[in-house]
Amino acid sequence: MTEAELIELLTELPDTDVLTADEASGAPEIAWGDTFATYTGAKQPFATIVTKDYGDFDAASKLNRPGVFRLNVAVGRERFTELLGYAPGAVPPGIDYTAFDVVLPHPVYAPQAFVCVLNPGEQARQLIEFAHARAAARG
């Protein structure tokens, strides 16, 4: 799926606020161009689309390559473990965070049960729909 297709999917979900950060949004400049999907009334996004590295803080995916973006999704501890075969706090070393269309632990937010996919295929739809339903259930 393209970045535009993912954003369209997010905007079609009920009770979802989608923001692509820019100067007018008041977001920090480093976030400009990234997209955040939050269940209405929630404080934290259930999905984000990131288009660049965030300095040394979050550079493992090498997003500064042309045409590369990363979908980040909050799936919860149980689903994280089902998808990856280990708990969010037990991420093994040696993961290739630059691999395309593979569900991976988020390089920074895995302990908070976020997974990520670089340039995802159709599996992104299921991840987003699951995270949205989870966010809706949490209110």
Results as ranks from 00 to 15, higher is better:
residue 71 L to Y: 12
residue 21 A to V: 00
residue 28 P to R: 14
residue 79 R to P: 14
residue 127 L to M: 01
residue 69 F to A: 02
residue 18 V to R: 03
residue 19 L to F: 08
residue 29 E to N: 04
residue 4 A to G: 10
residue 97 Y to R: 08
residue 120 P to A: 08
residue 70 R to F: 13
residue 88 P to T: 08
residue 94 G to W: 03
residue 120 P to L: 12
residue 79 R to W: 08
residue 105 P to C: 11
residue 31 A to W: 03
residue 73 V to D: 07
residue 2 T to I: 03
residue 133 A to R: 12
residue 128 I to W: 00
residue 63 L to W: 00
residue 58 D to W: 11
residue 77 R to H: 13
residue 54 Y to H: 11
residue 53 D to M: 05
residue 31 A to I: 01
residue 12 E to V: 09
residue 37 A to H: 05
residue 17 D to L: 11
residue 117 V to R: 06
residue 80 F to Q: 07
residue 16 T to A: 09
residue 110 A to W: 07
residue 24 A to S: 05
residue 64 N to S: 04
residue 20 T to E: 13
residue 18 V to N: 10
residue 28 P to Y: 06
residue 19 L to T: 12
residue 54 Y to R: 13
residue 9 L to V: 01
residue 1 M to K: 05
residue 129 E to F: 07
residue 81 T to M: 13
residue 22 D to R: 00
residue 56 D to A: 13
residue 87 A to D: 15
residue 55 G to K: 05
residue 52 K to S: 13
residue 78 E to T: 13
residue 99 A to N: 09
residue 122 E to A: 09
residue 115 V to S: 00
residue 56 D to S: 08
residue 34 D to N: 04
residue 62 K to A: 14
residue 39 Y to A: 10
residue 106 H to G: 07
residue 138 R to D: 13
residue 58 D to F: 10
residue 109 Y to E: 04
residue 112 Q to D: 14
residue 47 A to K: 12
residue 53 D to S: 06
residue 45 P to F: 07
residue 67 G to P: 10
residue 110 A to C: 05
residue 76 G to P: 15
residue 94 G to I: 00
residue 32 W to D: 01
residue 101 D to P: 04
residue 62 K to Q: 14
residue 41 G to A: 05
residue 106 H to Q: 07
residue 103 V to R: 00
residue 30 I to Y: 01
residue 61 S to W: 05
residue 74 A to C: 11
residue 112 Q to M: 07
residue 135 A to P: 15
residue 83 L to T: 02
residue 85 G to A: 06
residue 84 L to C: 10
residue 51 T to P: 12
residue 130 F to M: 08
residue 98 T to N: 01
residue 112 Q to I: 02
residue 54 Y to T: 06
residue 28 P to V: 08
residue 93 P to D: 02
residue 81 T to E: 15
residue 3 E to M: 13
residue 79 R to I: 11
residue 44 Q to H: 15
residue 134 R to V: 09
residue 31 A to N: 08
residue 108 V to F: 00
residue 42 A to P: 11
residue 31 A to P: 02
residue 92 P to L: 01
residue 41 G to F: 04
residue 131 A to L: 01
residue 34 D to H: 01
residue 4 A to K: 09
residue 137 A to D: 15
residue 13 L to D: 06
residue 57 F to Q: 12
residue 87 A to C: 14
residue 19 L to Q: 12
residue 16 T to I: 06
residue 94 G to P: 10
residue 99 A to C: 01
residue 33 G to E: 03
residue 68 V to W: 08
residue 48 T to H: 05
residue 61 S to L: 02
residue 87 A to N: 15
residue 139 G to A: 14
residue 119 N to T: 08
residue 93 P to V: 00
residue 127 L to C: 05
residue 1 M to Q: 11
residue 90 A to I: 12
residue 41 G to L: 05
